[in-house]
Amino acid sequence: MDKLRIGAVSYLNTKPLVYGIQQRLPGAEVVFDLPSRLADQLHAGQLDVALIPSVEYFRHADDYEIVSDACIACRGPVWSVRLLSRVPVPEIKTLALDEGSRTSAALVQVLLKQQYGLTPELHPLPIDASPDTLSTDAVLLIGDRAMHPTTGLYQEIWDLGDRWCSWSKLPFVFAMWIGRRGVDHRELADALQHCRDAGMEHLQQLATEHAGTHGLTVSDCFAYLSRYLHFTLGDEERQGLELYRSEATKLGLIAS
């Protein structure tokens, strides 16, 4: 394990998955970065395993394998992935996509196409840019900044987890631990599942430690980690992944 390079994410929603990871894997190099950047590093061979957007697994399925049943998913509203629209959603013509995650970028396009037949013109939203300064009709936000949108600017706000689950009747998986084929991941899989299980046992501690830095009360932070998120990749989650892959492929969003 001393040469293993692991890419992890520093978002609030990943805290239960990386609980004690440095202690559990003392010989591994653990790098924290944005999900999209980790995906690029994994594809470039700079990492052996990473917590990356689910869509990236499908884009490079011949090279990758799912390492663990620890994941970031939802079975209803997720709170931290939102579509903010200045116009009624059926009137959206331009859409800015948060560059932090590629799974959510494909998800919002699938939902807009399925529910309203929309294919909006796409624009980037850089990580350090304020969504309130954009001229697009709508913007996709993920992560911590999606949890506190500016009030008064938007006519409609979609929680994409809620929209997906209501439409598909299946959970949605945002990110998974993915490894490069040809590496023995069995020991790592046990370690990652242990981290997840330990994190689930310490949700109150995590909420207390991280609420303030994310602009949340402790009770709201605990609710987010315990009620809005789901951290196990089960049979229904895999069915949701397959439906997502199918719909995204139809829109040409899976090709690498």
Results as ranks from 00 to 15, higher is better:
residue 144 D to A: 14
residue 57 Y to D: 03
residue 211 A to N: 10
residue 120 P to K: 01
residue 194 H to W: 11
residue 93 K to R: 15
residue 226 S to P: 09
residue 67 V to R: 00
residue 65 E to T: 10
residue 155 Q to N: 12
residue 84 L to N: 06
residue 241 L to F: 06
residue 62 D to A: 15
residue 16 P to Y: 05
residue 15 K to M: 10
residue 245 R to N: 09
residue 67 V to C: 07
residue 148 H to N: 08
residue 152 G to M: 00
residue 223 A to H: 11
residue 172 F to L: 10
residue 202 H to R: 13
residue 18 V to W: 13
residue 27 G to I: 00
residue 183 V to S: 02
residue 235 D to H: 05
residue 164 W to R: 02
residue 238 R to M: 10
residue 46 Q to H: 03
residue 92 I to E: 13
residue 221 C to R: 09
residue 177 W to E: 06
residue 18 V to H: 12
residue 173 V to C: 01
residue 218 V to N: 10
residue 19 Y to W: 15
residue 180 R to M: 01
residue 160 L to N: 05
residue 249 T to N: 09
residue 148 H to D: 10
residue 111 L to N: 08
residue 119 T to P: 07
residue 82 R to H: 05
residue 142 I to S: 12
residue 13 N to I: 11
residue 109 Q to I: 01
residue 95 L to P: 07
residue 10 S to H: 07
residue 119 T to W: 04
residue 173 V to N: 01
residue 34 L to Q: 06
residue 81 V to P: 02
residue 64 Y to K: 10
residue 29 E to G: 12
residue 95 L to E: 08
residue 209 E to F: 00
residue 125 L to K: 07
residue 162 D to V: 06
residue 238 R to W: 03
residue 125 L to I: 08
residue 166 S to E: 11
residue 228 Y to D: 15
residue 93 K to H: 14
residue 94 T to E: 11
residue 212 G to H: 13
residue 144 D to R: 06
residue 43 H to N: 14
